[in-house]
Design a protein around this nucleic acid. Sequence first.
RNA 1: GCCGAUGUGGCGGAACUGGUAUACGCGCACGACUCAAAAUCGUGUGGGCUAACGUCCGUGUGGGUUCGACUCCCACCAUCGGCACCA
Length: 809
Amino acid sequence: MSYNHQAIEKKWQERWEVTGAFHANDGSGKPKFYCLIEFPYPSGAGLHLGHPRSYTALDVIARKRRMQGFNVLYPIGWDAFGLPTENYAIKTGRKPQDVTAENIATFKRQLKSLGLSFDWSREVNTTDPEYYKWTQWMFLEFFKAGLAYKTKQPINWCLSCKIGLANEEVVDGKCERCGGATEKRDKEQWMIAITKYAERLLADLDGVDYLEKIKTQQRNWIGKSEGAEIIFEFSPLPKGGSRGVAGTGTAGIPVFTTRPDTIFGATFMVVSPELARKWIAEGWEASGDVRAYISQALAKSEMDRANSEKEKTGVDTRLRVVNPATEKEIPVWVADYVLGGYGTGAIMAVPAHDERDREFASKFNLPIVDCPLIPIEEAIEKVNGKRVTQYKLRDWVFSRQRYWGEPIPLVRCERCAREQGTGNSEQGTGNSEQGTGGWIPVPMDQLPVVLPDIEKYEPTDTGESPLSAIDEWVNTTCPKCGGAAKRETDTMPNWAGSSWYFLRYIDPQNKTTFASREKLEKWMPVDLYNGGMEHTTLHLLYSRFWNKFLFDRGFVPASEPYARRHSHGLVLASDGTKMSKSKGNGVNPDEIVSEYGADALRMYILFMGPFEEPVPWNINGLVGVRRFLERVMRYVDDNGVEKNPKFKIQNPNIEDRNTASVLERHLKKISDDIEAFKFNTAVSAFMSLLNELEGKSLSLEQTKRLLIVLCPFAPHVANECWEMIGENGLVEDQAWPQFDERLLARDTVEIAVQVNGKARGTITIAPDADEVVAREMAVANESVVKHLEGKEIVKVVYVMGRIINIVVK
RNA sequence: GCCGAUGUGGCGGAACUGGUAUACGCGCACGACUCAAAAUCGUGUGGGCUAACGUCCGUGUGGGUUCGACUCCCACCAUCGGCACCA
């Protein structure tokens, strides 16, 4: 018998839809369980196998929780703004809106075909103006709180296309589109001061249940280090700039170091090309070779610069400073292994204690001086330094010069700017009402600022957003003074909408706020969040930050959005490489579903390998799971179901203890494996169970238990079998089984007998037998005896229920 | 380069807290059913030596700890994810 999966799956999917089986209930008195997957980016390629891997796993958990009596929220939506859609739209001459709508329709059809228990009534879409209205409103909250500010940041610029490029569009320093050269250019960008939350983002990790490797990644990304800032004074004062080197504010150069105790070994100083460039801009008269080195260094990518295997480069600035500990004059070099964005952009080089400094010193013949270390506190005091905590975390670049994103809802008013009498706001300083540099928030009643429907949305060759070319959209009136004003034409990064979507699921139709306080209190925090390891640093950190900010503003009830975070590994192509469009080694889930059925795909994707690790896709293994499902149906069918539903499956008297125990142990293992995210061994336990049941019969009640536990994995087959045995309703409405301790216990166990650590036989023994009994049986064992002959027993190690090892001489 | 992970049969993988390595599945071989095939069912399947009973070797490599190591420690090699404007 081969079951007709297409008919069965359609039938039960319709049944679930009609009965609203998976709708979360805001009014329910049951305990809540908020189960979240990272919502998909609806790309043109359609669903790939990574999606079902994550969604099926959490579907198993969501379904189990419902049967355990929880009110489950398992929602779905679309993270639909972004570069790939925009690029595709440009290439094909279509509108991103249309492309997105089409992609969403495809994704929706594909996801529905998998029988996932999403609550489709709460679907959200980040590109829907009713959604991004609130993204914009939240941005304005950041702005009002002084956390959004504008500053110059480098962007990648293609010299021939004359457009700004995302990092991803720059391959080996070349433009991905035309292959031409790219360079870094400075552009005014909106920033969000996530660094103000660095300490809390770090500290609060202690209170959440994330996989340890995820916490570690977050901690490293935040990169807290404690050290000192120490000023090295110039000797003599360089030319140009009245305050020593301009911008330092002192007659010296501050450095950040985590090792002030090594200061006696600081034989030279190295400054970053960025800092040197800043000095030049402020009046320092650098020599030609220094200028040339700086411009060449700034063209490199950060990763190239950080690569310590590459030979060190650098040039002497001819500036001299004094080591405050030794009071000796030391040279100042500029080198690209010092990064501009971290610390003060300058380091004291201690070649005796730092690998990179040593390498640099050897190459350029700089002195390497061994130094006795002194206590850190003493060192800081001696050189008049101050304790400083540094973070690697940087502020969030929040502008994109692109069309397909949320417009930043600010208006630039020259008149208001003049009246405020300030220029652009300084980095992250409280600019709540004053000093916003003429940037006026669009009032709440005018949100959303809707993306204009335009024909031409290619990037402009000025580096501005395509929106800047639309005069009728750009020109507006100032909400504050009513005068002429211009809209901000930058849009937000894709990360914006995905930073708070879990809040909108809670109250997706709300017109007056992003989600009502009452509902937020009911559902937050998310009880379980699953996503890819590739989102561990950026998205996870951004959304934690975003939620903390809303918490501080009093808008959400929990400071941490996710109580628990898990992750899944990539699904690779069968050759173990990443699936990619260009290689054409992708797999379309539609074909699998149509040929083998959704249940087979669901179970196989869980069976393939450990959930957290990458697994290569191999269609061959799928037949094994399909065979298993066939076997389940045949077993249920053969096991007594005449088509008369009154006929019960078996005489309950046949329920022998051995079979009952086998069933109980397997179902318990499966139930436990779900909790441990060990879906692969859960599936193999099902297979083992069926092997064990071969030729044996279950009672009706036992069969029902089996089907209930199967339901989260293969919901269509489980429901079909449920109907076959004459039961009404949905398996989903049943309660998850309790397990009977008496059936789980074993009467005897087989344990290994080792002689000198080598397995020589087995004995069957009570699980709690004592050593005397075990030893007696072991030494009597036929295959053990000959290894003991003529030897003296030195020691016996007995581990109850596991092993007995006889050590002989 | 930095941060995080992984490495076990022909293949995907299992192994609790250090306790019989290779569960489960795929593939393959043989057998049953069949005129035949498919499907299904059964048996076998890490490598060497052996007619067999057995026995030795075996979890990326090299060391170490232990009665006992896939598991712990040290060093190394290889592969994968992230590195801030991809999502």
